[in-house]
Design a protein around this nucleic acid. Structure first.
Lengths: 134, 134
DNA sequence: TATAAAACTGTAATCATTACAATTTTATAA
DNA sequence: TTATAAAATTGTAATGATTACAGTTTTATA
């Protein structure tokens, strides 16, 4: 997985081995993983990894606007910032689906007052599968 | 604050004194309070109120689609479902501002697969005040 | 008035996140 | 290379919002 280092450097992040691993995991897993999922998944390749490091690294990525946190079910989920898109969260099975809907841009007068660097559009409801079997 | 009872009844909620108080508090405080804020505010008028009751009641309101939870800063904030609108969250001072922006409706083909009963549009960034004094 | 159901309470447990001090690794310069 | 400082990582302990749950009170019903 090359050029992750370059990308991190471009965002003012020193590309340590751990950081590259965590970033690449996010790149290959766009299904909004939690800290725990990332930690579990990387443990075999990084046996000394600490959960605190995962937290720290993700916070760093958020700071540098590479990652966006999604708060759901009392837990943070992490999503690489790529194309603007929306999420649907099923309240029954707690699955998060990606939707190809673009969040609206703020109009000029509003945008003048706020410096926006991330948008989050979440639809809550019940997914098809859960509707079917009660 | 009349007709809250009626409204609750319409949503299949028995309008106990406590429930009406909590609902009215939300109606008069559209600034997305937390459980703790609601609990503190109502303690003088409801000295025996328990925080668990506030949690239970709000969960009930959410179930009946009267209230929408907003997860921010590792805490739930509660917002009466009124006109569709968006929120801006300042990452510096953690204030949540209301924005007069309507979340887009799902197009028919998408909406066919999901039963949506709530939408949440959140812009993250830095508010004007925080931009000014670093 | 008795009984069951619903609402409410209070304490204890849970669990994601944060704080923090210690250790390891990396970069820099003598 | 070696010494030193800075940065990154680790592990444990604390925090704090939320939930579980059992007991109590209130409300509705027969």
């Amino acid at each position: 997985m090359e050029n992750t280092s370059e990308l991190l450097r471009q965002h003012d992040i020193k590309p340590s081995f751990t950081r590259v691993m965590i970033f690449d995991y996010l790149k290959e897993n766009l299904n909004h993983p939690t800290v725990d999922e990332i930690f579990q998944a990387l443990q075999t390749s990084l046996p000394t990894l600490s959960k605190t490091t995962v937290y720290n690294t993700l916070d760093l990525f958020i700071d540098k606007h590479l990652v966006q946190p999604l708060l759901m079910n009392q837990q943070k989920h992490y999503d690489l910032i790529t194309d603007p898109h929306a999420h649907f969260k099923c309240e029954r099975c707690d699955t998060i689906f990606d939707l190809d809907v673009k969040p609206p841009k703020l109009d000029k007068s509003t945008a003048a007052n706020y410096h926006v660097y991330g948008t989050q559009l979440i639809y809550r409801g019940v997914c098809e599968k859960c509707q079917k079997h009660g």
